[in-house]
Write a protein that binds this DNA or RNA. Structure first.
Length: 409
DNA sequence: CATCCACAGGAAGATCTGGTAG
DNA sequence: CTACCAGATCTTCCTGTGGATG
C-alpha cells in the first residue's frame, strides 16, 4: 500500500471529534439562547400583538456585533411561524441583510423574494417596484414582519432614509395587511445618520443588547460544544480559554464560536482526540491571518495597487503621506499598464483600506508644509507582498525580483 | 499674526454596466 | 429595436483647515 493510501485510510478510519458540525456554523439558531431570555421575552411580547390581529410596533434593536441580535429575531420569528401555522393565522416574514442588499432597490427586491413575490432583479424604477410589492403584500392579507439587519449600511447613504421612511409608514397605504419593521444595527452612533421621522417610527420599541461577559460566553460555548463534539473532546478549561480570548476583544459570541470551530478543525486535522489549549491558540492566530488574507485578496485591482504602494513605501519610511503614495501608485500603474485614478478617488481607496484595518491614518499638519494624511501599514509588508503574489499573476511578476531600490523615486 | 502649503472630503454630475418593458 | 432605470465607479470642481514660517 502506498503512503498516500495510508494517509487516506487513516483519515477515513479516524473517529471524528465532531458529532454535529452544523451547530457551529454562523446561521445556526440553537434551541435556547442563553442569557438572552429578557430580550426574547420583550420581542415576543411586542410581536404577540400580531397573533390577536393587532398591529405590533416597529422595533429597533441595537448592540455590538455578536451580541445575539440576529439570533433573537430569528428565534422569535421561527416560534411565531410555528404558532401561526398551528392557529391557522396568516403570517409572513422577510429577513433582509442590508449589508448585502444595500440600496433601495435591492432591499425591495430581497423583501419581495423572501415573501414569495416575484420581481425583476433590476431594470425597474424604484417607485414602480415599491408599488408592486405594496400591492402584493396587501393581497397576502397577512401580518408581515420585515427585518432589516445591519440597517446602518442602508442609512449611511442618502437614499436609504427615503426607503426606510416609506417602509415604516407602509401601513397607511395597506388595507388588508399589516407590516412591522424591525431594524437591527451594531453601529451605536447610527442614530445620528437616521432621519428623525424614521427614527421616531422605527424606535416605537427598542431593545438594547449588551456584550456578553466571560461567564456568559462560557455558557454559550459550553452549550454549543456539547452539541458539536463527542464526549470528552474538549475540557472546561479550554472552553474557558476561548471565552476569555473572545471577551477580552469584544464579547462577540460569533467570534467565540468561530474560534471553537476552527480549534476543532485543527485538532481533527492533527488527528488529536481532544482539543487542547494549543489548538485554540493556533486557531486564534489562523483566524487573524485569514481575515487579513481574505481582505487583501478581495480588494479591487486599483486598491491592491494602492495598498502595494503603501507597503513598498512603508518598508523604507514610517512617514508615508498621501502625496508620496500617489507618486508610487502612479508608478505602479505605469508598470502594470493600469490607467491611474485621480487623487480624490485614491483618497477614497485609502479610507477603504483603513476601514478594513489594513492601514491606519492620521491627519497631520506640517504647518507651512501642508496638511495631509500620514498612513501606516497595520500588517507586515511581507504579508502584503506574499498575498498579492499569490492573488495576482501580474503583481507577482513585478514583485518577483523586487528590491527596495528599484522603486526609489 | 497673517499667510499659504498640501492636502481632506463634500457635491454634483459623467460614464458605463446590466437590466426591464413595450 | 428604443426608451428608460439603478447603481457602481470615477472625475471635476469646490471649500475648508492646522500650524510652521516669514
Amino acid at each position: 500500500m502506498s503512503i498516500v493510501d495510508k494517509i487516506f485510510d487513516e483519515v477515513l478510519n479516524r473517529k471524528s471529534i465532531f458529532k454535529n458540525r452544523r451547530v457551529l456554523s454562523i446561521d445556526y439558531v440553537p434551541e435556547t439562547l442563553p442569557h438572552r431570555e429578557k430580550e426574547i421575552e420583550k420581542l415576543a411580547k411586542i410581536l404577540a400583538t400580531a397573533l390577536k390581529g393587532g398591529k405590533p410596533s416597529n422595533v429597533f434593536e441595537y448592540g455590538k456585533t455578536g451580541t445575539g441580535k440576529t439570533a433573537v429575531i430569528l428565534y422569535v420569528l421561527n416560534k411565531l411561524i410555528q404558532k401561526a401555522k398551528k392557529y391557522n393565522l396568516h403570517f409572513a416574514a422577510a429577513y433582509v441583510n442590508t449589508r448585502m442588499y444595500n440600496t433601495p432597490y435591492k432591499v425591495l427586491y430581497k423583501t419581495a423574494t423572501e415573501l414569495g413575490i416575484k420581481v425583476p432583479r433590476t431594470g425597474l424604477a424604484v417607485a414602480d417596484i415599491f408599488e408592486k410589492v405594496l400591492r402584493r403584500i396587501d393581497m397576502l392579507e397577512s401580518f408581515v414582519v420585515i427585518v432589516l439587519d445591519e440597517i446602518d449600511y442602508l442609512v449611511k447613504k442618502k437614499e436609504g432614509n427615503d426607503i426606510l421612511y416609506r417602509l415604516t409608514r407602509i401601513n397607511n397605504e395597506l388595507e388588508n395587511s399589516q407590516v412591522s419593521v424591525i431594524g437591527i444595527t451594531n453601529d451605536l452612533r447610527f442614530k445620528e445618520f437616521l432621519d428623525a421621522r424614521v427614527l421616531s417610527s422605527l424606535s416605537e420599541e427598542s431593545i438594547v443588547f449588551e456584550p456578553y461577559t466571560v461567564e456568559q460566553l462560557y455558557d454559550i460555548l459550553k452549550q454549543r460544544a456539547e452539541l458539536a463534539f463527542i464526549d470528552g473532546a474538549i475540557d472546561d478549561s479550554t472552553l474557558r480559554l476561548i471565552a476569555a480570548l473572545s471577551a477580552r476583544e469584544s464579547g462577540d459570541a460569533r467570534k467565540a464560536i468561530d474560534l471553537l470551530r476552527i480549534a476543532g478543525e485543527i485538532a481533527e486535522r492533527e488527528g488529536a482526540e481532544k482539543i487542547t489549549e494549543q489548538h485554540v491558540r493556533m486557531a486564534y492566530e489562523e483566524v487573524e491571518r485569514d481575515i487579513i488574507k481574505a481582505a487583501i485578496k478581495s480588494l479591487p485591482h486599483q486598491e491592491k495597487l494602492v495598498l502595494l504602494a503603501i507597503a513598498l513605501l512603508f518598508t523604507k519610511s514610517k512617514k508615508v503621506t498621501t502625496g508620496v503614495v500617489k507618486k508610487m501608485y502612479e508608478k505602479l500603474c505605469e508598470i502594470t499598464g493600469t490607467p491611474p485614478v485621480t487623487l480624490r478617488r485614491m483618497n477614497d481607496f485609502i479610507n477603504d483600506l483603513e476601514t478594513l484595518g489594513l492601514v491606519s491614518c492620521q491627519i497631520v499638519s506640517f504647518g507651512r508644509y501642508g496638511r495631509t494624511k500620514v498612513i501606516s501599514l497595520e500588517i507586515p509588508s511581507q504579508t502584503v507582498f506574499l498575498v498579492l503574489t499569490e492573488a495576482d499573476p501580474l503583481l507577482a511578476e513585478i514583485l518577483k525580483d523586487w528590491s527596495p531600490f528599484k522603486f526609489d523615486t
